[in-house]
Design a protein around this nucleic acid. Sequence first.
DNA 1: ATGTTC
Length: 486
Amino acid sequence: MKIEIKQIRDYVWEIQRTPEMLVPGIVYGDTDSIVTLKKELAAKHGGFTPALVQVANVATLPGIVNASLAMADIHPGYGFAIGGVAAFDMDTGVVSVAGVGFDINCGVRILKTQLERKDVEPVKERLADALFRGVPSGVGSEGEIKLKEKEIDKLLVKGAAFVVEQGYGTPDDLEYTEENGAIKGADPACVSPRAKERQFKQTGTLGSGNHYLECQYIEEIYDEEAATVYGLHKGQALIAIHCGSRGLGHQIGTDYLKTLEEASRKYNIPIRDRELVCAPIKSPEGKRYLSAVYAGINCAFANRQVISHLSRKAFAEVFGISPASVRLLYDVGHNTCKAEEHEVGGRTKTLLVHRKGATRAFGPGRIECPTAYRDVGHPLLIGGTMGTASYIMRGTALGMTETFGSTIHGAGRALSRMQAKKQWSGAEVIRELGERGIVIRSHSKAGVAEEAPGAYKDVDRVVDIMHNAGINRKVARLRPMVCVKG
DNA sequence: ATGTTC
């Protein structure tokens, strides 16, 4: 498929429709980022499909509404680009494994402490040790919660509430979690025994790759009004948690890739890329996958809830503070597909919105936002790298209509994991970050090399693109002090 | 992302 891309307004570009595409592609970017994406298109690529081609491929899927969207952090992923968003008509549309990602409901949670940067700086090493000891991390890590299949079933339905009932956190935490920590419609019967087995000992573990547990401070406030509503101020120390549904989510993805491959043939869905297999939303296969995704979503909420509890304990140990003084700001996912109401052509419609490495970004007025945040919209939690800023943003009315209330999930990779490992060593990355006052703990030196800040795009520019395009507004910039890397 | 090439 020939990709023609042209600018339609500042920071917004359109991939022109071809006969195969049902809708155009919309890409958020600046001149430089679009040049980079075009270069990827022209390069001889070994084994992967360029991100812009993936955006165009998604535009060929039945029932897609308005456009195939690419946030400013877009880079090649499995089938869908990471940073990709696509909404489908509930009657004519499809559901796709690649549109969710394998780490179902991977997301970010931020907790607010009553500590300041100056309280944390002198004890960073001790805090790093306490967090590293207190929160299991790394490939195959196991936690203190051991669950049997029947209990897993409850966790998949009740999400974060299941672990709150067991003393991991407070009901207040649920108020400040997307979906109150439990999306309705999860069906454990749609999750394979193998997927459940993988969760037996993984509740409350961080995992590996780009997952992290950080202590950050607020370096700058851009929007005083929203910051006040969110209870944030300059210098404040925060806890940031980035993880997902671990082995369970991955197994659901693996299982349903096969199911949907068969469904694509059964329902005669034209598939341009084998990775884009899908099923009609209303088909038995589609419904079962969606019920399994919802279970995976709840699993991830529960994981982040337990990690919050363990982090509070570590902070209480180091600072002598009360765990209850650490309040949840918000918890929001960036690997999901969910049925949501959106305005299309002046009418409210229910759509199945796939967000693959794209954060839900609901603006002012949406009923889904916690009451305390409803007038400004919920906080958008954007994770940077170990060495660069993270951001808190807010949604806008334009974002609600143009991206179905979605935005970037982070900086986005610029180099593959392989390329990063060739360029840096883990020890070198840890030393350089240490010189800049950032304390790292990790079980994997190779993992640290793969996650080197230089392997990512410039998060400040990526955030500015979404801000300048009017899709979000910047609220605060955060800097890491301590980072536990999976 | 992933008991990382079941």
